[in-house]
Amino acid sequence: MSGKPLSSRQLAFMVFFLLPGSSLVYFAGMAARQDAWLAAGIAVFSGLGMLYVIMQVHSLFPGKNITQICPLVLGKVPGTILNILFFWSLFILTLSLIYDLTSVLKIIYPLFPTLLLIALIILTSSYCLFKGLQSIGILADVSIGVCLFFILLSFILFIPLMDLAKLAPVLENWKPLMAGVIYSADFPFNEVVILALFLPTVHDLASRGRIIYYWYLISALFLVLFDLQLVAVLGPGLAQLYTFPLFELFRLAGFGDFQRLEMLFFLLWFITGLFAILIYFQGLIFVTRDILGLKQDRALILPVGLCLLVFSYVMFPTEIIYLELGFKYTPVYTFPVNVLYPLIVLVAALIYRKRRSGYQSEQEVTPG
């Protein structure tokens, strides 16, 4: 891919879509019960730290993404091994995102076969990727206003339903709180590590890169408020009991005789969910290209999409299996990989640049 098709504003909007698209279906900090909103608030700093780390890595090697930098600073063999581990983490999270959006679509279209819905999601995503990153950036520009409208409207609708007494007692037990923090950090806040693959495609990152932090914080604030409202309306027990607690929250809201608002807010779920899949799908294409040493990546879209289709259908045949894998086992792998991978690359990159600078200094002072 030649050129830099994205602006900092467009990438910032993609960050805004990524976080809710990963967590609007399920209750992010459910392990913390009534402290779920607090756990999510603490976990925000984990994602913010990861965002800072990948920005620092990119500043050391502008024009290269993290999977190109990794073998450069660590060596080809260990760098490739780390890239493969990173690829598998992204692959698992992509499968989770596809399953989440499929679950929402099953509510709206219960008679559609699951395989058909997964195929439609992947084909739609593949078409968007074939159109190029610039088209995805323009789509982000067009969609941001709609999503902001629906998010702000939802907050207004939920306020009359809130009972702040359900938030008590605060900090009753630190162990559930820490579990909620770790899970929320892994899903969705640390998912911003995927942006390390997109930074080289941004043409004004040096001058306007801060806007990415701003929109990350705006999106994170919305998620914390969503968690707070979920607990304040449903209570920690019901919030954990429902498979789709936010969907139940929309069912309770309404304007007088105007009910079934969950259908109206389906657009919000679909846009943010599809954007999250697009970002991760494209990220998988980038990583696959770099691992295989290819120059072009468009030819990888359909093969990777086919793998996602097969694995999405085979790995999660039932909701029970998905919940057990997604909430019990997946974070054990994805959390350390998504945290340690960029940190290892950053430390190695700093050492690499220091050694290179020292070598160049020696060359300059050595007589010809």
Rank of each mutant, 00 (worst) to 15 (best):
A348M: 07
I144W: 01
G47S: 10
A43Q: 02
L308D: 03
I118A: 05
L72G: 04
N83E: 02
F222I: 13
F87D: 14
P176R: 01
L306R: 08
G41N: 03
L340E: 07
K295T: 12
L252I: 09
L350S: 06
P200T: 05
F226I: 11
L308C: 10
V146C: 08
F130Y: 15
L177Q: 04
S154T: 14
F316R: 04
E172N: 15
L292E: 10
T102V: 12
I69S: 03
K131S: 10
Y127C: 06
T330N: 15
L51Y: 02
G283I: 04
G29N: 10
T67F: 04
L153P: 06
Y109F: 14
Y213W: 15
F87S: 11
I42N: 00
V365A: 09
Y329N: 07
I218H: 08
V365K: 14
E172K: 09
L152W: 07
S59H: 10
K328R: 13
L167D: 06
G75C: 04
L133T: 01
G254M: 10
T201E: 03
F258A: 13
G75Y: 05
G237M: 12
F265G: 00
L284M: 07
F247A: 02
I291A: 00
S103Y: 10
M55Q: 12
K175I: 14
W215C: 11
F247S: 05
L97K: 08
Y313H: 15
N173E: 15
V192Y: 01
L323W: 13
S2D: 13
N190A: 07
R9N: 08
I84E: 09
F27V: 06
I136C: 05
M14N: 03
R298D: 14
A185C: 09
G49D: 01
R355V: 05
F198N: 01
F316Y: 13
K76H: 13
L101M: 09
G326M: 11
L197N: 02
N190R: 05
G29S: 06
N173W: 12
D100S: 04
S46K: 04
L105I: 14
T330F: 13
G358R: 08
G79A: 08
Q134R: 12
Y99D: 08
L74I: 10
I279M: 00
N338A: 15
L129F: 10
L350E: 05
I212H: 01
V337D: 01
I321W: 03
L340T: 11
A206Q: 15
F286V: 12
F247E: 06
A31V: 06
S89W: 05
P20Y: 03
F158L: 12
W88V: 14
A140P: 00
A232T: 01
L225Y: 03
H203Y: 12
L325P: 02
A140H: 01
